[in-house]
Amino acid sequence: MGYFELIIACVFVNNILLAQFLGNCPFLGTSKKMETAVGMAMAVIFVLVLAGTITWLVYTYILVKFGLVYLRTIAFIVVIASLVQFVEMFLKKSIPALYAGLGIFLPLITTNCAVMGVCVLNIDKEFTFLQALVASLFYAVGFGLALILFAGLRERIFLARVPKPLQDTSIALITAGMISLAFFAFQGMV
């Protein structure tokens, strides 16, 4: 598979949110306002690129080497959690401007299922390091795309008349379902 197809697959066809249904809590939680959604999207891109590559390295050079593949899940969780914590501290000290933009979202996505999912997918699909890097980046871009699209919709839904039982999260879930249906159109492209 070429890199172009890989990118298309990650962003659209296998969109982590709308086709694989991972990472739904930040998707619903931070999509009420465009501003927060953008912040969250950036934070996810940042964390996923780091997490995806590091876990690939851990898997290939440690777990496989010592025949401990069955410890994959637990190892990934510990690695990702510490990594995010580390990055948070690093940013706070060294790049305060970036921290001010992303910082508050970092702890919220420490072990988000989208992050975990992408790391596991990278392994399952037997990607090379470069492929894992590209895939992690573009899965995250796909996440951001879906989140920002969705926040735009929700800002409008807020102004519309919604029957009482369907207000807030329920209408959000229905809308999410419909966007997801729309994304099904990409199915089979790659």
Binding site: L68, L71, A75, V79, Q85, M89, F90, K92, K93, S94
Partner: peptide, 26 residues
């Protein structure tokens, strides 16, 4: 091995973080 590994991983991460919190202390 698995016990050793989990224990090792935990200690390494813990150590790194505690050093980091000293170095990157704000």
């Amino acid at each position: 091995e698995s016990i050793l590994f989990t224990f090792g991983l935990g200690s390494v991460c813990g150590l790194i973080l505690s050093f980091a919190s000293k170095i990157f202390y704000v």
